[in-house]
Write a protein that binds this DNA or RNA. Sequence first.
DNA 1: ATATAATAGATACAAACGCATATACCTTCC
DNA 2: GGAAGGTATATGCGTTTGTATCTATTATAT
Lengths: 152, 152
Amino acid sequence: MTAATPSHRRLATDSWESLLTSQVAMMRELQKEPLFKELGSREYDILYQLSRCSSGWLRLNELNEHVLLTQPSISRMVDRLESRGLIQRKSAEDDKRGVLIGLTEKGAAKQKTVGRAHVQRIMELMEVALTDDEMRTLQDLTSKLRTSVAGH
Amino acid sequence: MTAATPSHRRLATDSWESLLTSQVAMMRELQKEPLFKELGSREYDILYQLSRCSSGWLRLNELNEHVLLTQPSISRMVDRLESRGLIQRKSAEDDKRGVLIGLTEKGAAKQKTVGRAHVQRIMELMEVALTDDEMRTLQDLTSKLRTSVAGH
DNA sequence: ATATAATAGATACAAACGCATATACCTTCC
DNA sequence: GGAAGGTATATGCGTTTGTATCTATTATAT
């Protein structure tokens, strides 16, 4: 049983703040990538999630879990991506309320192009900061945190 | 010297993605706090930065470094917080282009109220997820990452 | 000294956002 | 099987955001 001493409190908040600010620093750096001018990082996130899921189709609410946006915002973001020809909608057969989102060929190509540059930049930044072992540890800890907080 | 093998690449991107999604999960949870209805989390961030700096005053561009917003957005956010009586502006004496931002008494009180609930929630979430040692390690690694990426 | 470039912050305007709510469909319970 | 309540997505509307640009001040170069 852990005591709620001031230093214990600080440990929790300091480590969270450190996580948060490192994320801001990385994001700021990643957003400098010129390719992100034509496809915002949250838009890329959508394409990325669609590219990596096994069936190729995701429900709107599944997308919503991964991006820090409200449901209406995702809905309209999907509108825009659809009108740009990057994704397509189809209604879910088992639940006619639902909508399935998938990449078009153009969208998949776009994701690959932007993704390559993105991955390259992430590698450059992570590599000089942390050793492989440290990356593994970081992944473990953040994974543990996410699982505990969100339960999946 | 590390080789750019696919698995090495994956290690960098996977650990970054894990960091990112854990941050999203935490944020989502923290934003459920009712007190954040009257003071958005980015607005709180501003008050928080002002509360913790030694002189009590920060330049607009210093604030900008800590929050993932563009300069015009910070500028207008400061407008709103000022008109709500939470912060005050004064021009910097050594550089007449500059503006210094500080908390009003009301702003400091607000920061404390919201901050307490915020800290409480962070503690609850972190505590069940990670041990003290793990939090220390997480802080070390993210700190290392931030320093490397942003250089401060 | 004066022109030139760089920097800090503010503002105009269009695009994107969140909140509240509407609509359509599914589930449950009687 | 029909009403009541729950869930998935869409839309109206006011607010906040980013891009581009503007003004004011400071730094640099000739």
